[in-house]
Amino acid sequence: MARLNMSQIDELKDLMEEAFADLVETYISDCEEKITRLRAAIEASDAPLSAEISHSLKGSSANICAEDLSDLFKAIEDQARLDNLSQMPQPFSDVQDEYQRVKGALQNLL
């Protein structure tokens, strides 16, 4: 699976021009805050809140061309919507690990 869709990210860089760095930083700080909240929501078994946060992360990750990460958030969202937070296909640490790799890849582009 591709960490970052490289042809798409080139287009994104062209589009954003000098604001690309700002976009990356905005995405990273947004993700870190939301991932912390998502983890807390899952631990508290708050399915609606978990669905809302993972939905938002799924969208923004897709927009930043992080397709694998987006899919991971989609899996969490799907489980949350089914109110089935205890039956996660993957441990939450997988999500955190993938996020760290995406973050590293994005920062490399700057």
Partner: peptide, 17 residues
């Protein structure tokens, strides 16, 4: 859009037009 990074991308597309 409540997501800042999404807003940035959309704004960039629209301004480019």
């Amino acid at each position: 859009d409540d997501n800042k990074s999404d807003r940035l991308i959309l704004a960039a597309i629209v301004k480019k037009m």
